[in-house]
Computed example of a mutant assay.
Amino acid sequence: MRIVACLNGDRRPGAHPALPVSVDQVVADAHAVVAAGATEIHVHPRNSSGAESLEPQVVAPLMERLQAEGPGVPVSLTTSLSAEADPWRRYDLVQRWAASALPDSVTVNLHEAGSVDLIRLLEDRRIGVEAGVWTVEAARILVATGLEAAAVLVEPTQVAVEDARRNADAILSLLDRAGVDRPRMLHGADATAWPVLEAAVSEGYDIRMGLEDTMRLPDGEEAHDNAALVAQAVNLASAAA
């Protein structure tokens, strides 16, 4: 089972006291979450003002530091339109990422404009793709296009736990019927983060946890940092094994 630490997401700087934004903070946090049991990390790169960015001059220094000083686990970056709203400019930015400082994989949300073209580019660049599937319609895109994703990231976005579970079940059922056999990760957000993680563990799917998904522990208490969230996720996974 992969246990991915999602360090910051699209949360605004200051949303949590321990939210890593700068390169120094991300590198330090990467070591802490791996020590807590994470096997990979997922990051939304940030520019000097703390805003998400896919600019090559932002991505390269981050990846160079993680490659040189990180804990030696795979690194995934976002390509969400929250980081670059123009899908054509996003394509251009990713095309210009330095070949010497590429992430191991990226997440691509299939419901976003330009996602299929972006995945084709990533395949050409030998960057692994985690296909972000938020809806049944997005799952149909994955099936219809025959995209070769390294993994499928099932991400129900509904606020209520039962609604999120129903959406996830519908997506997973479609993937099963279509014979999509790629590794699967399942996660929720905020109020659904821990219940969906527990469902993922029970089904044997890969999991992720971190301040991108929730800032609170299962009992509702604010987590001290990403490492505390990951440690709790590892404990839940171990207890179910």
Results as ranks from 00 to 15, higher is better:
2 R>K: 10
6 C>I: 02
15 A>S: 10
17 P>Q: 09
21 V>D: 01
22 S>I: 11
22 S>N: 12
29 D>Q: 14
37 G>D: 01
41 I>A: 10
44 H>M: 09
45 P>L: 09
46 R>T: 02
51 A>S: 13
51 A>Y: 08
52 E>Q: 12
55 E>M: 08
57 Q>N: 14
62 L>A: 15
63 M>V: 00
64 E>Q: 15
73 V>Y: 06
76 S>F: 05
78 T>L: 04
81 L>V: 06
83 A>G: 14
91 Y>W: 15
93 L>V: 02
95 Q>G: 15
95 Q>L: 15
96 R>E: 10
97 W>T: 03
102 L>S: 08
104 D>G: 11
105 S>P: 02
109 N>S: 13
111 H>I: 15
113 A>R: 12
115 S>Q: 00
119 I>M: 13
122 L>E: 09
122 L>C: 05
125 R>W: 10
127 I>N: 00
133 V>D: 06
134 W>N: 03
134 W>R: 12
142 L>M: 14
143 V>H: 04
143 V>I: 15
146 G>I: 07
153 L>W: 06
161 V>Q: 06
162 E>L: 11
163 D>S: 09
166 R>H: 01
167 N>R: 07
168 A>Y: 06
168 A>G: 11
169 D>L: 05
171 I>R: 01
178 A>E: 01
179 G>P: 05
179 G>S: 08
182 R>K: 14
183 P>S: 13
183 P>Q: 14
183 P>E: 13
185 M>C: 12
187 H>P: 11
188 G>N: 03
191 A>Y: 09
192 T>Q: 09
194 W>H: 14
197 L>C: 08
199 A>G: 02
200 A>K: 13
200 A>Y: 14
201 V>R: 09
202 S>I: 03
202 S>R: 15
205 Y>I: 04
207 I>K: 06
211 L>V: 06
214 T>A: 09
214 T>F: 06
217 L>W: 11
219 D>F: 02
223 A>V: 07
225 D>K: 10
227 A>M: 05
228 A>N: 06
228 A>I: 04
235 N>Q: 15
240 A>Y: 05
